[in-house]
Amino acid sequence: MMVTALLAEEVSALTNFLQYTFLGLQKGAVYATIALALVIIFRVSGILNFAQGEMATFSTFITWAIWGDGRVPIWAALALSLVVSFALGASIERLVIRPVSKKAAGNPLPIVIATIGLYLAFSALAPAIWGTDAKRFPTLFGEGSLSLAGASISYQTLGTLAVLAVVVGLLFVLFQKTKIGLAMRGVASNAESASLVGVSVGSVLMLGWALSSAMGCMAGALTANVGLNGALMIAPLIYAFAAATLGGFDSPAGAVVGGLIVGLVAEYSADYLAEVPFTTITFIGEQLRIFPAFLLILVVLLVRPQGLFGKPQVTRV
């Protein structure tokens, strides 16, 4: 009797562990997608886009509006919205970021403030147009789930991880196999030299912003089934910042690994550290289990100031 009870306890511990792992991976995949978007812009232009999350929320509202409660199939609506977001990202670079950068002459602060301006504008625009009530948004991959060692892994989890894999795959092909991808890496490493071989740096930056915006649109669609409102991306953006910092702001691989680690750490700590002070904290209505993740990141940064996968900065006199 005792033995079976112990065994059952162990089995349920394993089940719990798997359950948290699945959930952590699902959330981590979303953080990774946004972190990738942040990293792409940072790599080509050195800009930290504070508006990344709010742009994603706005894109998700566009997806929702096209979907129209089932009038248009959700995947078709998403495809259209991705195109709109792509164009939106490119226009933001052209109309906002480029003129500000030109005037700022190497000082990062005006650009930071411009992205904060975008953040404010986008965060207010969606609720102003569509209202502040939470919107119903479909689950992209249906409601079902598979069972694995007593734990259930939902189609949404599997689908989210698959989307991350597809995004990473497409980016890999873009950066490693195409001419424009090579140009983007060239600009990221040395913009002046890239322009001297004929790369139009402006076009590369526009493409970077367009891609990031589209990735934000994708990430938003993966999370909005919990209820779409203006605060959708506030917490995920902070996690994504954490993920990009952990992985290294100049490393796409780091963003993915960082996103998954941050997702897992946040999910595990929510359960296993429930009794430990400060580990489960609420933030603007959403559970923000970020303290242990922050702590981990601080330790990593103290050992490796450039993040796990980042390149060390070389200082020249």
């Binding site: 001419k179 090579l182 060239g186 040395n190 030299s193 890239a194």
Partner: peptide, 19 residues
Amino acid sequence: RGTITDLTVEENLRLGAYV
């Protein structure tokens, strides 16, 4: 020199043919 240090030698050459 302005070589793009993060790219390989071959990638530098390939980028040279960008136009």
